[in-house]
């Protein structure tokens, strides 16, 4: 039998309609674009981020400039749209600048935790057995403490400050991140295409890089995005307790703490940093929910 004759003369599925190829990320993007709630809150998040970046352009006053005369003035007093704080600094400017530290404290610890925890999780999940046991049992130790308590304890031990606060938060998030990555990796590892990749003679690193990471990043990213709002809240809490950002740096948690004493003088101003924390955190949360449902593509 001649071999060419035996091979298919035409392609098997020329008849099937040519389907538009959207791919995984294409589908996710499509869903996000058609999700008004996520789009709306995403826009607010974007505004907050822009506000933080362009704070020097947006802020009407220098957020550090104190004035004994202008202490605790009400809204609209002499161009101070939102009044002033207990040291006479412009509140609006401080709120705008405060977005910087809040976002930083929200994003950096999560990024660190995602990288470190994710790496540990992938290693543990792919290596299995003893390596996995060592990594995961270590993580379990951290799990034993409530996250707020752990964050306070670590940053308290290290002595406050923005960097130490971020380190503390990162340490709090690493175990959870590691667990998510480990579960996802272990799941992928059991699938046939990993075995097929091994059968082609690929080394572990190559397999992890080309076949594991792509499948683990999704769940890890979803989880990380949900951690951002938690991180913002915790960071504000740390600052409020004096364990995070140090004065005079403008920070919402810190502002909440110092303005608290003036709650009977300027009640509205006191609520502002809290409102800012609330709005930012809930927007990140809702966006994260939107991303999660958009990424829930059944493959």
């Amino acid at each position: 039998m001649s071999q060419t004759a035996a091979l298919p003369a035409t392609f098997a599925d020329e008849t099937s309609p040519a389907e538009r190829v959207r791919g995984y990320w294409g589908t996710v993007g499509y869903r996000l674009r058609h999700d008004p709630v996520t789009l709306f809150f995403g826009a607010i998040v974007l505004l907050i981020v822009l506000m933080a970046i362009f704070a020097p352009l947006l802020a009407p006053f220098d957020p550090y400039k104190e004035s004994v005369v202008l202490r605790l003035k009400p809204w609209g007093y002499r161009g101070h749209t939102l009044g002033t704080d207990e040291l006479g600094r412009d509140l609006l400017s401080r709120l705008i600048y405060g977005a910087r530290s809040s976002l930083l404290m929200g994003l950096v610890p999560v990024a660190i935790a995602t990288f470190l925890g994710g790496t540990l999780g992938v290693i543990g999940g792919y290596a299995g057995r003893r390596v996995n046991a060592v990594i995961m049992r270590t993580m379990d130790v951290f799990y034993a403490f409530p996250s707020v308590l752990l964050a306070v304890a670590i940053s308290g031990a290290m002595g406050g400050g923005m960097v130490n606060g971020m380190t503390a938060l990162a340490l709090v998030f690493i175990p959870a991140m590691c667990r998510v990555a480990e579960t996802a990796t272990a799941q992928v590892r059991s699938l046939d295409f990993i075995e097929a990749a091994r059968a082609t003679g690929a080394g572990t690193l190559t397999i992890v890089r080309y076949h594991v990471l792509g499948n683990v990043l999704g769940p890890v990213f979803i989880y990380a995005s949900s951690l951002v709002s938690v991180s913002i809240l915790l960071a504000s809490g740390l600052s409020f307790l004096g364990l995070g950002v140090k004065p005079p740096t403008p920070d919402w948690g810190l502002m909440l703490s110092t303005l608290r004493q003036s709650i009977y003088v300027v009640p509205l101003s006191c609520a502002l940093p809290g409102a800012a924390i609330f709005v930012t955190s809930i927007c990140f949360n809702l966006v994260s929910d939107g991303i999660r449902s958009a990424m829930d593509v059944r493959l």
Binding site: A6, A12, D13, E14, T15, S16, P17, E19
Partner: peptide, 25 residues
């Protein structure tokens, strides 16, 4: 000999054309 296979694959149920669904195969 080869088996007499039905060529192609079943239609996409998201966009069924008018007419007999088996016609393309």
């Amino acid at each position: 000999r080869d088996i007499e296979a039905i060529p192609g694959s079943p239609p996409d149920l998201r966009r069924l054309a008018a007419g007999c669904a088996f016609a393309p195969r």
